[in-house]
Nucleic acid binder design. Structure first.
Lengths: 153, 153
DNA sequence: ACCGTCTTCGCAAGGACATTGCGCGTGACT
DNA sequence: AGTCACGCGCAATGTCCTTGCGAAGACGGT
Protein backbone atom coordinates (compact mmCIF):
# COMPACT_ATOMS: atom_id res chain seq x y z
CA UNK A 1 0.00 0.00 0.00
CA UNK A 2 1.28 3.40 -0.91
CA UNK A 3 0.83 6.37 1.37
CA UNK A 4 -2.51 7.57 2.62
CA UNK A 5 -3.50 10.98 1.31
CA UNK A 6 -5.82 13.46 2.96
CA UNK A 7 -8.90 11.92 1.39
CA UNK A 8 -7.99 8.48 2.68
CA UNK A 9 -7.49 9.77 6.19
CA UNK A 10 -10.78 11.65 6.02
CA UNK A 11 -12.50 8.45 5.02
CA UNK A 12 -10.86 6.56 7.85
CA UNK A 13 -11.83 9.21 10.37
CA UNK A 14 -15.45 9.01 9.30
CA UNK A 15 -15.52 5.22 9.22
CA UNK A 16 -14.03 5.02 12.70
CA UNK A 17 -17.03 6.92 13.97
CA UNK A 18 -19.68 5.46 11.70
CA UNK A 19 -18.70 2.13 10.26
CA UNK A 20 -22.02 1.56 8.55
CA UNK A 21 -22.25 4.81 6.62
CA UNK A 22 -23.31 4.28 3.03
CA UNK A 23 -20.71 4.64 0.33
CA UNK A 24 -22.79 7.39 -1.24
CA UNK A 25 -22.78 9.54 1.90
CA UNK A 26 -19.14 8.83 2.58
CA UNK A 27 -18.32 9.95 -0.95
CA UNK A 28 -20.22 13.16 -0.51
CA UNK A 29 -18.57 13.96 2.82
CA UNK A 30 -15.06 13.56 1.42
CA UNK A 31 -15.86 15.25 -1.89
CA UNK A 32 -15.62 12.35 -4.27
CA UNK A 33 -17.95 10.58 -6.64
CA UNK A 34 -19.42 7.35 -5.29
CA UNK A 35 -17.43 5.27 -7.72
CA UNK A 36 -14.08 6.78 -6.81
CA UNK A 37 -14.93 6.46 -3.14
CA UNK A 38 -15.93 2.82 -3.54
CA UNK A 39 -12.63 2.04 -5.23
CA UNK A 40 -10.61 3.75 -2.53
CA UNK A 41 -12.54 1.95 0.17
CA UNK A 42 -11.88 -1.35 -1.55
CA UNK A 43 -8.15 -0.63 -1.52
CA UNK A 44 -8.19 0.36 2.15
CA UNK A 45 -9.94 -2.87 3.05
CA UNK A 46 -7.92 -5.22 0.88
CA UNK A 47 -4.60 -3.70 1.90
CA UNK A 48 -5.44 -4.23 5.55
CA UNK A 49 -5.53 -0.59 6.63
CA UNK A 50 -9.11 -1.28 7.66
CA UNK A 51 -9.00 -4.61 9.43
CA UNK A 52 -12.73 -4.93 9.99
CA UNK A 53 -16.00 -3.41 11.04
CA UNK A 54 -17.67 -4.16 14.33
CA UNK A 55 -20.94 -3.33 16.00
CA UNK A 56 -20.45 -1.84 19.45
CA UNK A 57 -22.99 -3.24 21.89
CA UNK A 58 -24.25 -1.74 25.09
CA UNK A 59 -22.83 -3.58 28.04
CA UNK A 60 -26.23 -4.79 29.19
CA UNK A 61 -26.69 -6.68 25.94
CA UNK A 62 -23.49 -8.65 26.31
CA UNK A 63 -23.05 -12.08 27.74
CA UNK A 64 -19.59 -11.06 28.88
CA UNK A 65 -20.18 -8.41 31.48
CA UNK A 66 -17.19 -8.86 33.72
CA UNK A 67 -13.88 -7.27 32.85
CA UNK A 68 -10.67 -8.27 34.57
CA UNK A 69 -7.35 -6.50 34.23
CA UNK A 70 -4.52 -8.97 34.64
CA UNK A 71 -0.88 -8.05 35.21
CA UNK A 72 1.63 -10.77 34.44
CA UNK A 73 5.37 -11.09 35.09
CA UNK A 74 7.54 -13.63 33.32
CA UNK A 75 10.63 -15.41 34.50
CA UNK A 76 12.81 -13.59 32.00
CA UNK A 77 12.86 -11.22 29.07
CA UNK A 78 14.55 -13.45 26.51
CA UNK A 79 13.02 -13.26 23.06
CA UNK A 80 12.20 -16.95 23.14
CA UNK A 81 10.43 -16.61 26.49
CA UNK A 82 8.31 -13.72 25.25
CA UNK A 83 7.48 -15.45 21.97
CA UNK A 84 6.31 -18.62 23.69
CA UNK A 85 4.17 -16.68 26.13
CA UNK A 86 2.62 -14.60 23.35
CA UNK A 87 1.83 -17.59 21.19
CA UNK A 88 0.04 -19.20 24.12
CA UNK A 89 -1.91 -16.13 25.21
CA UNK A 90 -3.23 -15.58 21.71
CA UNK A 91 -5.10 -18.87 21.94
CA UNK A 92 -7.31 -17.79 24.83
CA UNK A 93 -10.50 -16.32 23.36
CA UNK A 94 -11.36 -14.40 26.51
CA UNK A 95 -8.27 -12.23 26.31
CA UNK A 96 -9.42 -9.12 24.49
CA UNK A 97 -6.27 -7.06 24.79
CA UNK A 98 -2.68 -7.93 25.55
CA UNK A 99 0.24 -5.51 25.62
CA UNK A 100 3.90 -5.98 26.33
CA UNK A 101 4.56 -3.23 28.82
CA UNK A 102 7.26 -1.11 30.29
CA UNK A 103 7.30 -0.93 34.06
CA UNK A 104 6.78 -3.34 36.90
CA UNK A 105 4.87 -6.05 35.03
CA UNK A 106 5.73 -7.53 31.65
CA UNK A 107 2.25 -7.91 30.23
CA UNK A 108 -1.13 -6.42 30.85
CA UNK A 109 -4.28 -8.24 29.75
CA UNK A 110 -7.93 -7.28 29.52
CA UNK A 111 -10.01 -10.40 30.01
CA UNK A 112 -13.76 -10.74 29.51
CA UNK A 113 -15.79 -13.21 31.54
CA UNK A 114 -19.47 -13.87 32.07
CA UNK A 115 -19.25 -13.85 35.85
CA UNK A 116 -16.89 -14.68 38.66
CA UNK A 117 -17.27 -18.43 38.20
CA UNK A 118 -16.45 -18.05 34.54
CA UNK A 119 -13.40 -16.01 35.43
CA UNK A 120 -12.28 -18.66 37.86
CA UNK A 121 -12.46 -21.19 35.04
CA UNK A 122 -10.50 -18.93 32.68
CA UNK A 123 -7.88 -18.31 35.33
CA UNK A 124 -7.50 -22.00 36.04
CA UNK A 125 -7.65 -23.36 32.49
CA UNK A 126 -5.90 -20.62 30.58
CA UNK A 127 -4.00 -18.03 32.56
CA UNK A 128 -2.36 -20.42 34.99
CA UNK A 129 -1.28 -22.57 32.09
CA UNK A 130 0.62 -19.82 30.29
CA UNK A 131 4.36 -20.59 30.05
CA UNK A 132 7.08 -18.76 31.98
CA UNK A 133 4.66 -16.89 34.23
CA UNK A 134 5.93 -16.15 37.71
CA UNK A 135 3.29 -13.70 38.93
CA UNK A 136 -0.35 -13.05 38.06
CA UNK A 137 -2.30 -10.16 39.54
CA UNK A 138 -6.01 -9.87 38.72
CA UNK A 139 -8.13 -6.79 39.37
CA UNK A 140 -11.78 -6.45 38.49
CA UNK A 141 -13.63 -3.58 36.96
CA UNK A 142 -16.36 -2.44 39.32
CA UNK A 143 -17.82 0.05 36.89
CA UNK A 144 -17.16 1.23 33.37
CA UNK A 145 -16.70 4.99 33.16
CA UNK A 146 -15.52 5.33 29.57
CA UNK A 147 -15.26 2.90 26.67
CA UNK A 148 -14.51 4.74 23.48
CA UNK A 149 -13.47 2.94 20.35
CA UNK A 150 -11.30 5.82 19.13
CA UNK A 151 -9.72 9.06 20.17
CA UNK A 152 -12.05 11.97 20.56
CA UNK A 153 -15.19 10.23 19.40
CA UNK B 1 -36.67 -2.78 25.02
CA UNK B 2 -38.11 -6.17 25.71
CA UNK B 3 -35.92 -9.23 25.97
CA UNK B 4 -33.59 -10.36 23.24
CA UNK B 5 -34.53 -13.67 21.69
CA UNK B 6 -32.21 -16.14 20.00
CA UNK B 7 -32.53 -14.43 16.63
CA UNK B 8 -31.56 -11.08 18.12
CA UNK B 9 -28.51 -12.52 19.78
CA UNK B 10 -27.53 -14.29 16.58
CA UNK B 11 -27.75 -10.98 14.76
CA UNK B 12 -25.67 -9.27 17.41
CA UNK B 13 -23.04 -11.98 17.30
CA UNK B 14 -22.71 -11.62 13.54
CA UNK B 15 -22.65 -7.83 13.65
CA UNK B 16 -19.95 -7.84 16.30
CA UNK B 17 -17.73 -9.68 13.87
CA UNK B 18 -18.83 -8.05 10.65
CA UNK B 19 -20.45 -4.69 11.19
CA UNK B 20 -20.80 -3.93 7.51
CA UNK B 21 -22.62 -7.07 6.44
CA UNK B 22 -25.58 -6.35 4.19
CA UNK B 23 -29.05 -6.69 5.59
CA UNK B 24 -29.80 -9.31 2.96
CA UNK B 25 -26.95 -11.57 4.00
CA UNK B 26 -27.62 -11.02 7.69
CA UNK B 27 -31.23 -12.03 7.12
CA UNK B 28 -30.21 -15.19 5.35
CA UNK B 29 -27.73 -16.18 8.05
CA UNK B 30 -30.29 -15.85 10.84
CA UNK B 31 -33.13 -17.39 8.81
CA UNK B 32 -35.36 -14.37 8.34
CA UNK B 33 -36.70 -12.45 5.38
CA UNK B 34 -34.80 -9.21 4.64
CA UNK B 35 -37.76 -7.11 5.72
CA UNK B 36 -38.14 -8.76 9.11
CA UNK B 37 -34.40 -8.56 9.64
CA UNK B 38 -34.34 -4.89 8.74
CA UNK B 39 -37.08 -4.15 11.24
CA UNK B 40 -35.34 -6.05 14.02
CA UNK B 41 -32.07 -4.28 13.27
CA UNK B 42 -33.85 -0.95 13.42
CA UNK B 43 -35.19 -1.79 16.87
CA UNK B 44 -31.78 -2.93 18.12
CA UNK B 45 -30.21 0.32 16.96
CA UNK B 46 -32.91 2.68 18.18
CA UNK B 47 -33.20 1.00 21.57
CA UNK B 48 -29.47 1.41 22.13
CA UNK B 49 -28.55 -2.26 22.28
CA UNK B 50 -26.27 -1.49 19.35
CA UNK B 51 -24.56 1.75 20.25
CA UNK B 52 -22.65 2.20 17.00
CA UNK B 53 -20.53 0.74 14.27
CA UNK B 54 -16.83 1.38 13.94
CA UNK B 55 -14.10 0.56 11.48
CA UNK B 56 -11.13 -1.09 13.13
CA UNK B 57 -7.89 0.26 11.70
CA UNK B 58 -4.50 -1.34 11.61
CA UNK B 59 -2.19 0.31 14.07
CA UNK B 60 0.14 1.57 11.37
CA UNK B 61 -2.67 3.61 9.87
CA UNK B 62 -3.44 5.47 13.07
CA UNK B 63 -2.20 8.83 14.14
CA UNK B 64 -2.44 7.67 17.73
CA UNK B 65 0.11 4.89 17.96
CA UNK B 66 1.16 5.14 21.57
CA UNK B 67 -0.88 3.48 24.27
CA UNK B 68 -0.37 4.29 27.93
CA UNK B 69 -1.93 2.43 30.83
CA UNK B 70 -2.48 4.78 33.73
CA UNK B 71 -3.25 3.71 37.28
CA UNK B 72 -4.77 6.37 39.48
CA UNK B 73 -5.49 6.55 43.20
CA UNK B 74 -7.82 9.10 44.74
CA UNK B 75 -7.74 10.72 48.13
CA UNK B 76 -10.92 8.97 49.21
CA UNK B 77 -13.75 6.73 48.10
CA UNK B 78 -16.66 9.03 48.88
CA UNK B 79 -19.35 9.05 46.22
CA UNK B 80 -18.86 12.76 45.66
CA UNK B 81 -15.13 12.32 45.17
CA UNK B 82 -15.63 9.56 42.64
CA UNK B 83 -18.34 11.46 40.77
CA UNK B 84 -16.21 14.58 40.44
CA UNK B 85 -13.25 12.60 39.20
CA UNK B 86 -15.36 10.70 36.68
CA UNK B 87 -17.00 13.82 35.32
CA UNK B 88 -13.58 15.35 34.75
CA UNK B 89 -11.96 12.30 33.17
CA UNK B 90 -14.78 11.96 30.68
CA UNK B 91 -13.81 15.29 29.17
CA UNK B 92 -10.37 14.14 28.07
CA UNK B 93 -10.67 12.86 24.51
CA UNK B 94 -7.46 10.83 24.73
CA UNK B 95 -8.82 8.56 27.44
CA UNK B 96 -10.23 5.59 25.58
CA UNK B 97 -11.12 3.41 28.52
CA UNK B 98 -11.65 4.11 32.19
CA UNK B 99 -12.69 1.59 34.83
CA UNK B 100 -13.32 1.91 38.51
CA UNK B 101 -11.31 -0.97 39.88
CA UNK B 102 -10.97 -3.26 42.81
CA UNK B 103 -7.47 -3.61 44.17
CA UNK B 104 -4.55 -1.30 44.81
CA UNK B 105 -5.53 1.54 42.50
CA UNK B 106 -8.94 3.16 42.18
CA UNK B 107 -9.03 3.71 38.44
CA UNK B 108 -7.29 2.29 35.42
CA UNK B 109 -7.15 4.27 32.18
CA UNK B 110 -6.11 3.44 28.65
CA UNK B 111 -4.80 6.61 27.04
CA UNK B 112 -3.92 7.09 23.37
CA UNK B 113 -1.23 9.54 22.31
CA UNK B 114 0.59 10.30 19.11
CA UNK B 115 4.04 10.09 20.64
CA UNK B 116 5.85 10.70 23.87
CA UNK B 117 5.69 14.48 23.53
CA UNK B 118 1.96 14.24 22.99
CA UNK B 119 1.63 12.06 26.06
CA UNK B 120 3.60 14.57 28.09
CA UNK B 121 1.11 17.23 27.03
CA UNK B 122 -1.85 15.02 27.93
CA UNK B 123 -0.33 14.20 31.29
CA UNK B 124 0.33 17.85 32.06
CA UNK B 125 -2.89 19.37 30.74
CA UNK B 126 -5.40 16.66 31.57
CA UNK B 127 -4.31 13.91 33.90
CA UNK B 128 -2.52 16.13 36.41
CA UNK B 129 -5.54 18.37 36.50
CA UNK B 130 -8.00 15.65 37.52
CA UNK B 131 -9.52 16.30 40.94
CA UNK B 132 -8.74 14.29 44.09
CA UNK B 133 -5.84 12.40 42.52
CA UNK B 134 -3.06 11.46 44.92
CA UNK B 135 -1.07 9.04 42.76
CA UNK B 136 -0.61 8.56 39.02
CA UNK B 137 1.36 5.67 37.58
CA UNK B 138 1.91 5.53 33.82
CA UNK B 139 3.16 2.51 31.92
CA UNK B 140 3.62 2.32 28.18
CA UNK B 141 2.75 -0.41 25.77
CA UNK B 142 5.89 -1.58 24.02
CA UNK B 143 4.05 -3.88 21.65
CA UNK B 144 0.49 -4.93 20.97
CA UNK B 145 0.02 -8.69 21.14
CA UNK B 146 -3.78 -8.89 20.96
CA UNK B 147 -6.48 -6.34 20.28
CA UNK B 148 -9.80 -8.05 19.76
CA UNK B 149 -13.03 -6.14 19.73
CA UNK B 150 -15.04 -9.01 21.19
CA UNK B 151 -14.73 -12.34 22.88
CA UNK B 152 -13.67 -15.22 20.71
CA UNK B 153 -13.48 -13.37 17.45
C1' DA C 1 9.11 20.03 -25.74
C1' DC C 2 6.89 15.75 -26.77
C1' DC C 3 5.18 11.41 -25.97
C1' DG C 4 4.07 7.16 -23.46
C1' DT C 5 2.64 5.39 -19.17
C1' DC C 6 0.38 5.32 -14.95
C1' DT C 7 -3.01 6.84 -11.92
C1' DT C 8 -7.38 8.46 -10.57
C1' DC C 9 -11.20 10.76 -11.68
C1' DG C 10 -16.45 11.20 -13.22
C1' DC C 11 -20.22 9.34 -15.83
C1' DA C 12 -23.49 5.84 -16.95
C1' DA C 13 -25.79 1.36 -16.72
C1' DG C 14 -27.27 -2.81 -14.69
C1' DG C 15 -27.86 -5.45 -11.00
C1' DA C 16 -28.33 -5.78 -5.96
C1' DC C 17 -30.07 -3.88 -1.88
C1' DA C 18 -33.04 -1.39 1.80
C1' DT C 19 -37.32 0.03 3.17
C1' DT C 20 -42.27 0.50 3.51
C1' DG C 21 -47.23 -0.81 3.14
C1' DC C 22 -50.12 -4.57 3.28
C1' DG C 23 -52.36 -8.81 4.54
C1' DC C 24 -51.95 -13.14 7.06
C1' DG C 25 -51.11 -16.31 10.87
C1' DT C 26 -50.32 -17.13 15.80
C1' DG C 27 -50.95 -16.70 20.59
C1' DA C 28 -52.76 -14.25 24.79
C1' DC C 29 -56.29 -12.42 27.19
C1' DT C 30 -61.45 -11.24 27.96
C1' DA D 1 -65.55 -17.07 20.33
C1' DG D 2 -63.88 -12.62 19.64
C1' DT D 3 -60.44 -9.20 19.84
C1' DC D 4 -56.08 -7.41 20.00
C1' DA D 5 -51.17 -7.16 19.52
C1' DC D 6 -47.25 -8.90 17.49
C1' DG D 7 -44.20 -10.53 14.06
C1' DC D 8 -43.84 -12.64 9.80
C1' DG D 9 -43.35 -12.85 4.36
C1' DC D 10 -44.40 -10.80 -0.03
C1' DA D 11 -44.11 -7.25 -3.27
C1' DA D 12 -42.98 -2.70 -5.04
C1' DT D 13 -40.32 1.34 -5.24
C1' DG D 14 -36.64 4.01 -4.68
C1' DT D 15 -31.80 4.05 -3.48
C1' DC D 16 -27.36 2.29 -3.59
C1' DC D 17 -23.13 -0.37 -5.14
C1' DT D 18 -20.20 -1.80 -8.64
C1' DT D 19 -17.97 -2.17 -13.05
C1' DG D 20 -16.61 -0.68 -17.75
C1' DC D 21 -15.23 3.15 -20.19
C1' DG D 22 -13.03 7.35 -21.66
C1' DA D 23 -10.69 11.68 -20.19
C1' DA D 24 -7.57 14.58 -17.51
C1' DG D 25 -3.45 15.27 -14.99
C1' DA D 26 1.37 13.84 -13.18
C1' DC D 27 5.72 12.11 -14.17
C1' DG D 28 9.90 10.67 -16.47
C1' DG D 29 12.72 9.50 -20.44
C1' DT D 30 14.12 10.70 -25.08
Amino acid sequence: MSELDSIDTAMLRILQQNGRISNAELAERVGLSPSACSRRLDILEKSGVISGYHAHLSQKALDYRMIAIVHISLSGQFAKTLAEFEAAVKLCPNVLVCYLMSGEYDYILRVAAKDLADYERIHRDWLSALPHVVKINSSFALREIIDRPNVGV
